[in-house]
């Protein structure tokens, strides 16, 4: 138990000490939200509200739509990249200090995943800095709902990251693999554009992508679709259907939890076998 805490603590200390990374982490979300989002916003609303026949669709604000997706993106990236520290520890030798100690490998793996998840939650919360600039209203109760969901999602992605990290020897290789993996998943998750009117092949990929449901949970908390006009909800792609069943928040929690458990177990088994 103490070991898990120590491994966790090290990652958290290092996160807050790394100022460059803290500031740099705003770059991508800033570009997507302010540069890309604001640019697209005008085009989107003229396309949707252009006919003028529906008042509800005129309310479509692309930047607001993107915001939950950007929080999601930040959490995914931070969580999956947190396992980079495992590869770096191998490269710089610290992993040996950890692995020759009498604490169990399982503790190390769990500590690492928890550390990555914690850091990702902080990073995700930091994105709330953008709130005043984009006109979304975020309440305290939303934040309190967001934190555990962010943690759950981050836990799943940190586990995937750790699983990949155990197989790789260099930081460069790890970064390559993660980029190739995370970008398509992100594009196919509905984080950056509404999921409607997709071609069938893409629709299938979107629905087997776990990030889709993760992003959707953030959307459900922040955008409050139950208060929306059904037409607007439809335009934003907020009613995900699988086999004619509309996916609920609870379904999503269960799905991501199962994913988390599967990957943390796989990652721990792999890590347990690794030689120092």
């Amino acid at each position: 138990m103490e070991g898990i805490l120590a491994v966790w603590q090290r990652d958290v200390i290092k996160f807050f000490r790394n100022r460059a990374q803290l500031i740099g982490s705003f770059a991508m979300p800033f570009m997507f939200l302010i540069l890309f989002g604001s640019g697209m916003s005008g085009a989107m609303s003229s396309m949707l509200g252009g006919g003028g026949e529906s008042g509800a669709l005129a309310e479509f604000d692309f930047v607001q739509f993107m915001f939950p997706g950007i929080i999601g993106m930040t959490v995914f990236n931070t969580a999956i990249f947190s396992a980079l520290s495992v590869v770096q520890d191998k490269e710089f030798g610290y992993m040996r200090e950890i692995l020759v100690s009498p604490m169990s490998r399982v503790s190390v793996a769990i500590g690492k995943v928890l550390g990555g998840s914690t850091v990702a939650v902080f990073q995700g919360l930091m994105m709330l800095i953008f709130v005043p600039f984009i006109g979304v209203s975020i309440t305290i109760s939303m934040v309190l709902q967001l934190i555990p969901i962010m943690f759950l999602v981050a836990f799943a992605l940190s586990s995937i990251g750790l699983l990949i990290a155990t197989a790789l020897k260099t930081a460069q290789g790890f970064q390559m693999v993660i980029q190739v993996l995370i970008f398509p998943m992100l594009f196919l998750s509905g984080a950056l554009f509404p999921l409607n009117g997709l071609p069938t092949w893409m629709d299938i990929l979107v629905k087997i992508n776990p990030l889709t449901y993760s992003v959707d949970m953030f959307k459900k908390i922040i955008l409050e679709p139950e208060k929306m006009d059904p037409a607007l909800r439809q335009a934003m792609g907020l009613d995900i259907e699988v086999f004619n069943h509309v996916i609920t928040f609870t379904d999503e929690i269960i799905a991501v939890s199962i994913l988390s458990i599967v990957f943390v177990v796989l990652a721990t088994i792999r890590f347990n076998k690794a030689e120092a």
Partner: peptide, 21 residues
């Protein structure tokens, strides 16, 4: 070297204490 160079000497030692219970 197997030290964590981003941490202080004290932090390195403290972590070791925890790893070894």
């Amino acid at each position: 070297s197997t030290l964590d160079e981003k941490l202080t000497a004290n932090e390195n030692l403290m972590l070791h204490c925890k790893f070894y219970g």
